[in-house]
C-alpha cells in the first residue's frame, strides 16, 4: 500500500519536475510548439488509455471528439458570442452528451464491431465538418480567436506552456486517483472478464459508458485548447488517421499505463519533427512502430521497461 502510494506520488513529483524544468531546455518557439502539442496529445491519450488499456474497449474515432471540441471553440465565440472559456465548457458538455447518447448502443458491441462503429462515427464527424461549409468553413477550415482568461488574451508560448503543463498535471493526478480507486479496478475487471465483473456486483455497462464519456470529454477539452493555441482548425482534426495516431500513442506508451500515455504522446509528437527531413518516410516509420510495438512489446514501452527494472531489483 505505502509502496504503491509512494510510487504514485513519486511519479507525480517527477512529472511536475519535468514540466517545471521544461523552459530551461526549450530554446525557441519551435521547441515550445512541440512541447505544447505533446502535452495536449498526452491529455487525450490519458483518457483514451483509460478506455482502451484499462477497460479494454477500443475506439478508432476519438479524433472526432477532439475535432468537435476544437470546432466548438472556433464556432461558439465567433458566431454566438460565447466567452472562449464558456465555449470550451459548452463544447466539453455537448461532446459528453453526444458520447453518452452513442455509448449506449455502441458499447453493446465488442471487438471488431466496436472498432468499426467508432471508426464510422469518427468519419461521419469529419464528413459533416467538411460539408457544413456555412458553419465550419468546410475543408478550408476556420480561424479561431484567442483564449481569454480573466480578461486577458492568452498569448505567447510560455503562457500556453504553463497552461497545458498545469492541465496535464491535473489530468494525470485525477487519472491516477481513478486508477487506484474502486472505479479503476472495476474498469480493469470489465476488461478482464465481463461475466465475472457482473457476478462481483460491477455494473459492466455503467462503467463502459462512464469511461467512454470521460475519454470523449478529455479529448474535447484538449481539442478546444488546440484550436485556440493553433488559431486555426480544419476537418483533418477528425480524420481517421488522427484517430489512429492517438491509438498509436497509447499502444506505444503502454496499455493501462498512465505514464505510458504521456511517454507515447511525447514520443510520437516528437517523431515527425525529428523525421522532418525524411518527410516521405514518416508513414513508413509510423506503420512500422505500430506493428513492431504490438508484435515485440505487446504491453508497450513503459510497462515493459518497468517489468525489466523490477526484475533487476528483485
Amino acid at each position: 500500500m505505502s509502496n504503491q502510494l509512494l510510487q504514485r506520488h513519486g511519479g507525480l513529483a517527477l512529472l511536475a519536475a519535468i514540466i517545471a524544468a521544461g523552459p530551461l531546455f526549450l530554446d525557441n518557439g519551435f521547441h515550445y510548439n512541440v512541447a505544447i502539442l505533446a502535452g495536449l496529445n498526452a491529455i487525450v491519450c490519458i483518457g483514451l488509455n483509460l478506455l482502451i488499456g484499462h477497460a479494454g474497449q477500443i475506439s478508432l474515432g476519438h479524433a472526432g471528439f477532439f475535432a468537435l471540441g476544437a470546432y466548438a471553440s472556433a464556432i461558439l465565440p465567433e458566431r454566438f458570442g460565447f466567452h472562449p472559456l464558456g465555449a470550451l465548457l459548452t463544447g466539453a458538455l455537448l461532446v459528453g452528451l453526444l458520447a453518452f447518447a452513442i455509448a449506449r448502443p455502441i458499447l453493446r458491441l465488442r471487438g471488431h464491431y466496436l472498432a468499426m462503429a467508432t471508426l464510422g462515427m469518427g468519419i461521419i464527424v469529419s464528413i459533416v465538418l467538411d460539408q457544413k461549409v456555412d458553419l465550419t468553413g468546410g475543408p478550408d477550415g476556420m480561424v479561431v480567436g484567442d483564449l481569454t482568461l480573466f480578461g486577458q488574451a492568452l498569448r505567447g508560448n510560455l503562457a500556453w506552456y504553463w497552461l497545458v503543463g498545469a492541465l496535464l498535471f491535473v489530468t494525470t493526478w485525477m487519472a491516477l486517483n481513478l486508477v487506484h480507486s474502486p472505479v479503476g479496478r472495476a474498469l480493469k475487471a470489465v476488461h478482464g472478464s465481463e461475466l465475472a465483473a457482473a457476478a462481483m456486483g460491477v455494473d459492466v455497462f455503467h462503467y463502459k459508458v462512464l469511461v467512454f464519456v470521460l475519454s470523449a470529454v478529455l479529448a474535447a477539452i484538449a481539442g478546444s485548447l488546440f484550436a485556440h493555441y493553433n488559431g486555426f482548425v480544419t476537418p483533418d482534426e477528425a480524420s481517421f488517421i488522427h484517430s489512429i495516431q492517438l491509438v498509436t500513442m497509447v499502444v506505444l506508451g503502454g496499455m493501462a499505463s498512465i505514464a505510458g500515455s504521456i511517454v507515447g504522446a511525447v514520443a510520437l509528437t516528437l517523431l515527425p519533427q525529428l523525421l522532418a527531413d525524411f518527410h516521405d518516410y514518416e508513414m513508413i516509420v509510423f506503420g512500422a512502430i505500430l506493428m513492431g510495438t504490438m508484435i515485440l512489446l505487446p504491453t508497450g514501452v513503459v510497462p515493459t521497461l518497468a517489468a525489466r527494472i523490477r526484475e533487476r531489483l528483485a
Binding site: 478508432l60 471488431h112 506503420g287
Partner: peptide, 10 residues
C-alpha cells in the same frame, strides 16, 4: 486490429 492498421499505414 492495431497490427493490421500498422501494416496498412506502412
Amino acid at each position: 486490429i492495431i497490427i493490421t492498421i500498422g501494416a496498412s499505414i506502412l
